[in-house]
Design a protein around this nucleic acid. Structure first.
Lengths: 327, 327
DNA sequence: GCCGACACTTTGAACGATCCTCGGAGGCCA
DNA sequence: TGGCCTCCGAGGATCGTTCAAAGTGTCGGC
């Protein structure tokens, strides 16, 4: 028993290929009785349209490409994985498959995407982890590769379509939460890697407290996004009299919280970022990035672009949510 | 400037399509001079063979399918993600793309795979997280879907091709390591979910110590794979006089280590499982599953199966490595 | 000078789905 | 009854690649 095709099914049912094709793609064009008969035959035979033939004929792969983001250190490292999950789910709902591929550098990423698009294996792509002066957007535009970015155009003019989470607002909300708990000296533990995302979060904290530059400097510690470094940073902040800390990641927050617990300081509070399983398990407040919403919006932007390549590209900023772990 | 195809390139170079095809697929069939000319033209024009047309003609998608494993709790949750990474890298090296898709249940996973295979979007698949009485292997066999499993056939007879890591040997090695450090009362913190993987690791510890059933019971605590539960378990083990603990995961091990540090017990030791970034950062010994090797072997088995569907299926057990964090 | 051997190269025919054009059946109105 | 329109379906052409088979041209041997 060979795999059924449009032609074989058509011969069997004594209708034309076109009729079956219509049943699948434009059911309203076919008479009810015929449609029912064809649908039954499709069901019975287990016929599945060949994605390859479709792609060839329609010049549409119905697939999206996405680089497998490199392994990250720390507890928050799984964050991009969860975004990828949501992206794949969203694409799936719209009938798009997702092709993942490895790449060591941004340049290689763009090369691979060009290859996949050129060979009609994907129609468009999603890029993540935009950075200051990231040149992928312009490379992709130059190569005519439709894309959407998770991450805004840090220091760029035109950047194509993008979605991002307002980290500044999230950090500000976390800070307000701590102020609401009665804290007055609230520190910030951030990243020392020059990440624009980290700078944005720090800005939210700073803005909310309206600190003088000198005070801000005293209350900030920037370090690697690692457990040990975070613990060290918390020790230092506590020595400086701080009673609460906003952290740029859950990795740092979990470390800070561990220090707090070790010292039994029940009047000290910590807020993290990314709402990871670990902070959730520890009952640690954390700023959640709504990845599902981000993925949905990103996909909508991408599909809009595919539908009308001439349309101007948009950027969307999504508000994060502080999970306070209360009631 | 449209996208070049075999035919357009051939016309431009005044050679036939087949010649260009040969340059790409069987370079030795083409005269050196012609080949050089064609290669230059390919380079210059940026020609890329259409994956869709190839798949259609060859009835080979040159792609593998893999379910996006559901989000896991805990620090070790990222483990399957790292396996997926290695799998994608290995496939890529052999010229295979990887298509990922979501699925809520094992049954849905198999359905999606059948659909992808039927529509010529993939040629084969990889399944992970095999469980006691997992019926995916037989479903896949019934549907004639080539596959390889990461995970052995727990309680099954014929299971097709598989690769797994010898968790029992890993736990035994961890235990030997602790014995070598002079520990005599070594406990085990495991999972309470009935996982065969967990049982295997526990068996390795038990076997190495040659305990009586009563003693073993007293030295084992099984709980959820969560930080809080692991910390609680460690507290209890310490009360029972244990001086070292083998843990079924890094999540539990990090929790146990945190308890140890909080109590300042420098003569107590903990060993984890999965060699995650967190345990690495804490300098905690951990049993590493060589995912890259597993992925390579899994892919080899899968490709062998595709090359010769009649060949008997194999199972391979890979030895894990204890990372002692010493010099 | 003819033949076969050999090394390349070309041509036609698939792979399976969809677009496009066209034809037949039936209904409606004059 | 004839003309016209609508609704469905039929068949050819097409997407870009590769296989199979047939076609060129060159050379040596007899």
């Amino acid at each position: 028993m060979k795999k059924p095709t449009l032609a074989s099914l058509a011969a069997e049912l004594k209708v034309s290929r076109q009729t079956i094709s219509n049943v699948i793609n434009f059911p309203e064009r076919v008479r009810d009785e015929t449609r029912a008969r064809v649908e039954a035959a499709i069901e019975r035979s287990g016929y599945r349209p060949s994605a390859a033939a479709r792609a060839l004929r329609n010049q549409r792969a119905m697939a999206l490409g996405m680089r497998l983001s490199p392994m990250r250190d720390g507890i928050s490292g799984a964050f991009m994985d969860s975004f990828m999950r949501e992206m794949v789910v969203a694409a799936d709902r719209k009938g798009y498959r997702t092709v993942v591929f490895p790449a060591l550098t941004r340049v290689e990423e763009v090369e691979r995407l060009a290859e996949l698009l050129g060979s009609l294996a994907i129609d468009a792509c999603i890029i993540t982890d935009t950075w200051t002066d990231d040149d992928r957007p312009e490379r992709l535009q130059a190569a005519d590769i439709p894309f959407v970015a998770f991450g805004r155009p840090w220091g760029r003019e035109d950047h194509g379509a993008w979605v991002d989470v307002d980290g500044r607002a999230g950090a500000a909300e976390a800070t307000r939460f701590l102020v609401g708990l009665g804290h007055e000296l609230i520190g910030f533990i951030g990243w020392s890697d020059g990440s624009p995302v980290g700078a944005d979060r720090k800005a939210g904290w700073e803005q909310e407290l309206g600190l003088s530059a000198a005070d801000a400097d005293r209350l900030v510690i920037e370090c690697d996004d690692l457990f040990e470094a975070g613990a060290e940073a918390m020790e230092q902040l506590l020595e400086r009299g701080v009673t609460a800390a906003v952290c740029a990641s859950d990795t740092l927050a979990v470390a800070a919280e561990t220090v707090r617990r070790a010292k039994g300081m029940t009047d000290v509070a910590v807020v993290g970022f990314d709402d990871t399983t670990v902070s959730r398990a520890m009952g640690l407040p954390s700023v959640r990035q709504p990845v599902d919403e981000v993925a949905r919006i990103a996909l909508d932007l991408l599909l809009a672009r595919l539908a009308d390549p001439e349309a101007p590209s948009e950027g969307v900023l999504v508000a994060p949510v502080l999970e306070t772990r209360e009631g």
